[in-house]
């Protein structure tokens, strides 16, 4: 759903109405962003149920802290940050421990990037979803959300080198999975 297709009201005006406690506007804001945020949460979660739990917590947080949104910059970017923080906190609470092993990668395989272009979003999402929890978190934060290794290390309480090695492992695993797909396709 495009932000402008909802109605003539701008996103800024919608935020202002939400801050005044207008629940209809809150619902509109939720509907405007819930699709993208759900996909984001799903990438961090184990399954759809967990993703919806994170999404719910994240939106409650967003509405409670909406007054902290400066109005400068894109609202979606701010929401993504809040949602990622919520996902990380959720996982800290609900998962015993991620395996952030500091292992050097032995080989890096580089499949043809055109394979990715030919794949649908859902197929790639499924591949990412198959990554182990720790790898997936680092991969999502670095590759999709654009966090630096320092920021990832700060957020997850791990070393920067661990973040780097997890990323390499995640890439390697993804590429291995892609290779297997190519082989299966013949």
């Amino acid at each position: 759903m495009s932000p402008l297709s909802l109605n003539s009201i701008t996103e800024k005006e919608l935020v202002a109405l939400c801050l005044k406690g207008d629940r209809i506007s809150c619902k509109q804001l939720f509907e405007l962003h819930s699709g993208k945020m759900m996909a984001l949460c799903y990438r961090f979660a184990r399954d759809k149920n967990e993703a919806e739990d994170i999404l719910q917590e994240g939106f409650i947080r967003i509405f409670n802290k909406l007054d902290l949104y400066s109005g400068e910059g894109v609202l979606e970017a701010w929401m993504r940050r809040v949602m990622i923080n919520t996902a990380l906190k959720y996982k800290q609470k609900n998962v015993t421990k991620h395996n952030y092993s500091d292992i050097d990668d032995k080989h890096v395989f580089d499949p043809t990037p055109t394979i990715i272009e030919e794949m649908s979003k859902d197929e790639i999402l499924r591949l990412v979803q198959n990554l182990p929890d720790g790898y997936r978190t680092v991969f999502n934060m670095y590759v999709i959300e654009g966090y630096s290794h320092k920021e990832i290390a700060d957020s997850l309480g791990i070393g920067e080198s661990t973040s780097r090695s997890q990323l390499v492992k995640a890439r390697t695993l993804l590429k291995t999975q892609l290779l297997n797909l190519i082989r299966l396709a013949g």
Binding site: A39, A51, P113, I124, L125, V128
Partner: peptide, 14 residues
């Protein structure tokens, strides 16, 4: 390429 595919991906919500 992965970012391009996934960054703006959407999923239905219950």
């Amino acid at each position: 390429k992965i970012r391009d595919k996934l960054f703006n991906a959407e999923m239905p919500v219950s």
